[in-house]
């Protein structure tokens, strides 16, 4: 029995390693070829170079698209987290009539193809005669970011005892100051995590921005445009490799901050 358990544990471990390889190896070809001294993406590798990174960084269009993506991502992250915070509080703290239905509605964007979200907002903006701009991209991104923000913040709020807030009120603080002295510091890891993750969702999104950006260009839209030109591929690879690196760092930071909070709220008994 015990030996068997160990045997299937080894089998599963080998499987898990293969699975991780399946997840990561395809993506690793992007950074690999971004340092290859050839415009063709093919083996054998001809030599090491950083020229594609230099070229990419010298490109005004890249810088412009990057600036746009940063603006949109920051705005979408801020707005969706600020919307998610009170909503998550309401859904975890109060018995709200129809709360489950509202939560389901807010999570709807996870279950709708992005193209449908994009075209339906396009139709609405067109009907309301609102010109397409980076602001309309932010609106579109907020709809897909809010479910993520709410999920992250709700799990954080569920983790701490409601009577902490009551204790603060009981000790003489107002509701507003209780939020700043108790709720906010305790939810802070969740807020930071939600900001980082919603920023990633917005920063990486191509399709919604594609429909709502009008003449503006975000980084994914720029990359999409470059894919048509084979001679541009190496610089796109360099750009993609950089984006992947920064994404990884942000995601690890977000998850690490979130886990810090999780460990912090488990009391150490008998210390």
């Amino acid at each position: 029995m015990r030996a068997r358990g160990r045997a299937d544990g080894v089998g599963l471990f080998v499987y898990a390693i293969f699975y991780l390889a399946f997840l990561y190896v395809p993506v690793l070809f992007l950074p690999l070829f971004s340092f290859n001294n050839s415009t063709f993406i093919s083996f054998p590798l001809s030599g090491f170079t950083t020229q594609w990174y230099v070229q990419m960084w010298a490109d005004d269009e890249v810088q412009h698209a990057l600036a746009n993506s940063l603006k949109v991502g920051a705005a979408a992250a801020l707005v969706s987290t600020m919307l998610g915070l009170p909503a998550a509080k309401a859904l975890t703290r109060y018995r709200v009539p129809g709360g489950t239905v509202m939560l389901g509605f807010v999570n709807l964007p996870l279950f709708i193809p992005e193209i449908v979200l994009g075209i339906s907002l396009l139709i609405l903006l067109n009907t309301a005669a609102i010109p397409l701009s980076l602001i309309t991209v932010v609106i579109g991104h907020v709809t897909v970011c809010v479910p993520f923000a709410i999920t992250v913040l709700m799990s954080r709020m569920e983790g701490f005892d409601r009577s902490l807030e009551e204790a603060s009120l009981d000790l003489g603080e107002t509701g507003w100051m209780t939020f700043w002295r108790v709720t906010f510091p305790l939810v802070l890891p969740g807020i930071v995590s939600a900001l980082l993750l919603t920023f990633m969702v917005s920063f990486d999104d191509f399709l919604i921005a594609y429909f709502l950006a009008g003449t503006q260009v975000t980084l994914p839209i720029y990359i999409w445009g470059q894919l048509r030109f084979p001679y541009k591929l190496p610089t796109v690879l360099a750009l993609g490799a950089l984006i992947l690196l920064v994404s990884c760092i942000l995601v690890i930071a977000a998850e690490w901050i979130r886990s810090l909070g999780v460990r912090g709220r488990r009391p150490v008994v008998g210390a």
């Binding site: 701490f160 005892d161 009577s163 603060s168 009981d170 003489g172 107002t174 912090g264 709220r265």
Partner: peptide, 17 residues
């Protein structure tokens, strides 16, 4: 609650972590 002359000891103690 913050305007009342009472204070409370909670069942869970509610010590701010």
């Amino acid at each position: 609650p913050h305007k009342r002359p009472s204070n409370m000891v909670f069942q869970s103690y509610a010590i701010f972590p």
